[in-house]
Design a protein around this nucleic acid. Structure first.
Lengths: 145, 145
DNA sequence: TGTCTAATCTTGAATCGTTCCAGAAAAGGT
DNA sequence: ACCTTTTCTGGAACGATTCAAGATTAGACA
């Protein structure tokens, strides 16, 4: 899973131009999945020096458009990005600190697509967000009480 | 289902003050579930005249805090509100127009709480969002092609 | 029924995340 | 090397939401 594919390969494979900001963004996401834009921008700047916020947004949009990255938006959180795509996995989000972890789909490959009553909608994706408390925050809460 | 409980009763039952804006917001939500703040504000103003946007936000927060309303935030959409609470139901969202419909949980009462690997998280809710195309937009898309 | 106080509402400004715009820079095919 | 198209920069703008301070009001209690 943690196969950190060469960013250059990924970009070429998707028929995209290889630019420093893009490579840096992919590297940043490989090291820190579920990062928000600010975090990604900070990481990229650490590596490259000055890069405009706009460039980060543009790169992330380009990556998600071609399917190299995925954008998730848990309620109350800014957009988060990850490189793991195409396997219909889900997420657990910590109510306390916002930490996010991956969760493989519990029901197989294309599972949750079954809604009891779809109201005539054509459903193509089921997105599951588990809400709870992460190990760290659980510890803190117990200590506090 | 469409039991439009008396807003005043609901508020009293929750130990909340009964104010015109609150009653109007509840009425608006009863008639148009899954409304965004702007929509709710418009409906409330139609009924009461001038009400500040802030008041709408305050009322909605108060209602969600006591559990009379529920806030949902589909990715890319402003917050939506509904009165149907406590039954762990889910939503279908139209990718084209943003229309939202309710979907009863397919797996029973407290179902989706089972994650394959919870990474040590304590999970208390599973939120499912189905993405697809609503009947209206399906028709339009077919006509266009 | 009048008084009092905490809860609520108004007005207006501020914040956050994100997008739009126009021009400068640069990747990569020819 | 050159040229076209894509990408990046800088700065302004935007929508949704929240913050802050003071005026108003619902409802408990005398």
């Amino acid at each position: 899973m943690q196969t950190v594919d060469d960013p250059v390969e990924l970009l070429r494979g998707a028929g995209m131009r290889v630019t420093r900001p893009r490579v840096a963004v992919i590297s940043a996401l490989a090291l820190a999945p579920h990062s928000e834009v600010d975090r990604i921008a900070a990481d990229v700047r650490t590596e490259l020096g000055g890069v405009s916020t706009q460039a980060i947004y543009d790169v992330l949009r380009a990556l998600t458009d071609v399917g190299l990255a995925r954008r998730i938006e848990p309620a109350g959180s800014p957009a988060l990005f990850e490189l793991r795509v195409g396997d219909n996995h889900h997420h657990v989000v910590c109510r306390e600190c916002g930490a996010v972890a991956d969760v493989d789909c519990a029901h197989g490959s294309a599972p949750c697509l079954t809604a009891s009553d779809n109201h005539g909608f054509t459903i193509d994706e089921a997105e599951v967000t588990y809400w709870g408390t992460c190990p760290d925050c659980t510890t803190v809460l117990e200590t506090t009480n």
